[in-house]
Nucleic acid binder design. Structure first.
Lengths: 228, 228, 228, 228
DNA sequence: CATGAATGAGGATTCATTCAT
DNA sequence: AATGAATGAATCCTCATTCAT
């Protein structure tokens, strides 16, 4: 819902229905674009960025190689759009989870946020890896600065919602630590730390613990610890 | 003699003096090997795995390109040995920090371990990134299974020391959570989560908090939370 | 009507007014064609044949890319027409200069021709380069044979006027060499040789002489030498 | 003779015989290099720079594609070396022709120089075209500045010898024009102008004159004209 | 043991041209 | 007539690895 709009490079045709040949052209363009992104998603997620050639994407999308370049300037750009896609999904999930228009208590809200993050990780492991790996290596250099900004902005949304929930928890006396940004950082770092550890086959083997269990424990430990 | 030893960076050569031409040959081999690893360390850490060619390494090591292949089968293998090197350092640091032959209380021991991990991260950011990035991407496939085992073994050392400290903390009543492995997992995940978050430029920007401060808070929160 | 006419840049359209929709269509076609040629002239002269894409031309002409191919079969054809355009201009300039309907003496006529050639070179350096470079490289193969013929025909006009002036000079005793075609060849080769040398940055640097001066000297030397 | 030495990138081993494996390596390298240059000469001269791929050169040289890049950084570099090769030959021919250690009169010397230039053109038409085309188009940008300098230097040799002969002609009263550089420019421009004209199929057709004849006439006309 | 010359598979990107609308 | 989306052939260059000396 949100994703489609926010990722569209051109358009901005928010008026829903379009009519005439111009609109059909535009719809076809959007369709092609989505075809290519879907194809890229498949092959990137399956075989990894480096192992995939632009030809592979073109074949999977059933278009010519040149067509891919008609919609995306570089291979990296395609990956960047998948990254944004993933971030969109995550942000959307978190928005629903935090639901600041609902009258929940802080404990419920924090739990819902934590659960939503875990679910996102479990349902979209490739997107999660993409988001976490972003900016590592020489990838960052090849990326449109606008995309970087976009990633930053969206990520800030997530952390700000968390911070807002933390403030509520402070009001309710659940959390006693002063600095809300630091408390939010601890929560994010702790929960994400579990995902990072267990998303890695080798480290998962070392920890030898069930993800749900460890994540749950971490949630309790953090909330408990933040409340002194 | 064993491979495990040979990848010690500052190899103690604790068996004293080797004599005769055979020993000189061996010493020269070890020297060459170290030269190459040192060179690889420099260029890999400076420019990244992909940007570096085997030629670069050979030039930096002042040996022929073929010589590099005399000591390491593939480019990936070299990186793997750097990874082991980093792990060696980390394990050595942790061993000193935990110092189970000392009669410290659990709180002190846990703190010392946490501080050692942070120091390692701050003093060897490239080694840390290498360790964390291990197994991501196409790297894992190209790696010698023996190295994988080695990494697993060493890492287990670290987690077992942590677990041992946790058990001591349970005995002393500092930690009330039942499963010591889970408690150790929470500690590792939490502390490492801070490092992961702040080792990433973009996320560091988002969190906008000082590393030492956040890491310290996390330590307190975790210990406090694990003690109910 | 004939292709030859259509490539006149400032086409005289000497057949007066065309009327009716048919004529309007035709005028519009001619207009589009000129738009494209004008655009091609700009971009080719500014950035060179190879650096320019058909898309660049289309954008500069403010037409669709397909439209370009409606008027010219290949990218090379467009260049060929620019070449003819340049040749048209040169021939027109020479015609005015030689002005065989005027009662000038041979010396004046030869001088006027020489000056006109120099002025063309100075006022239209890109056209001059185009004319001189013609047939070099792989360009010749991609060219319409009709264009080749056209170039040949026009060029012959020029040399024939020169020859006619030479014959007048023989009559007047200014030139004593027997074969008028050879004398004309010497004049053309000599004057053109100066332009070739000085139109080339590196060789201009080597010769280190002012164009006007060298050209003037050459003119005198040739006429003088041809008169024994 | 001169050429080989002056074009060698490395080496400078002017001591003739080399011994030992190091020298053999070096000789083999030089041999490979020459193989590639010879192959490039063939295919470039036959099909033109743009029509030739690096693969074509590799195949013709019977080496791998990578090997070509071991000796020359870019395709343009190869052409540049062919250009220098041609220039070397020309300069060598001119040196022999002018032979300033001989006690010839100016007329003889000028004639010998002119003839040598003509012979070079006739024996090495492709080299001549290469030299004349140099610096046109985008080629100049891709070239090593050192090569440009080299071309400049060599070319200056040629023009200086011509100038020296002109000065002798002034002393002997054969040439009365004041500025020797200008007189040399006229001679070079005139003779080269004939070659340019007749090296071009279309213009040769227009002029319709025998090269030897026109060149000879030009020589006489110029010398005669320069002497008043 | 040491070397470094040789290899050639591999891949991103461009662009002239076509053709359905 | 006009358009511009789609195509895919074409090409330069890199670099890990091998192997003869």
């Amino acid at each position: 819902m949100t994703r489609g709009v926010s990722c569209m490079t051109q358009s901005g045709n928010s008026n829903g229905q379009l009519r005439g040949t111009a609109s059909r052209r535009e719809r076809e363009r959007a369709q092609r674009r989505d075809d290519i992104l879907r194809a890229a998603r498949e092959v990137f997620f399956q075989r990894g960025f480096h192992a995939v050639t632009v030809d592979d994407i073109a074949v999977a999308a059933e278009v010519g190689k040149g067509t891919v370049y008609l919609y995306f300037n570089t291979k990296e750009t395609i990956l960047a759009h998948l990254l944004l896609e993933g971030l969109d999904r995550l942000v959307a999930d978190l928005k629903i989870a935090y639901a600041f228009d609902e009258a929940w208590d802080a404990h419920t809200r924090l739990h819902r946020g934590a659960i939503a993050y875990l679910k996102f990780f479990q349902n979209n492991p490739e997107y999660y890896r993409l988001i976490m790996a972003f900016d590592r290596g020489q990838f960052q250099a090849a990326i449109d600065p606008a995309v970087y900004q976009e990633v930053l902005t969206r990520s800030l949304d997530g952390i700000e919602w968390l911070e807002r929930a933390v403030k509520q928890a402070q009001v309710e006396g659940l959390i006693t630590i002063e600095n809300p940004r630091e408390a939010a950082g601890v929560l994010w770092a702790g929960l994400n730390g579990v995902l990072v550890l267990l998303s890695h086959p080798l480290r998962a083997e070392i920890v030898a613990t069930d993800l749900d269990s460890l994540y749950g424990t971490m949630t309790e430990v953090l909330i408990s610890g933040l409340g002194k």
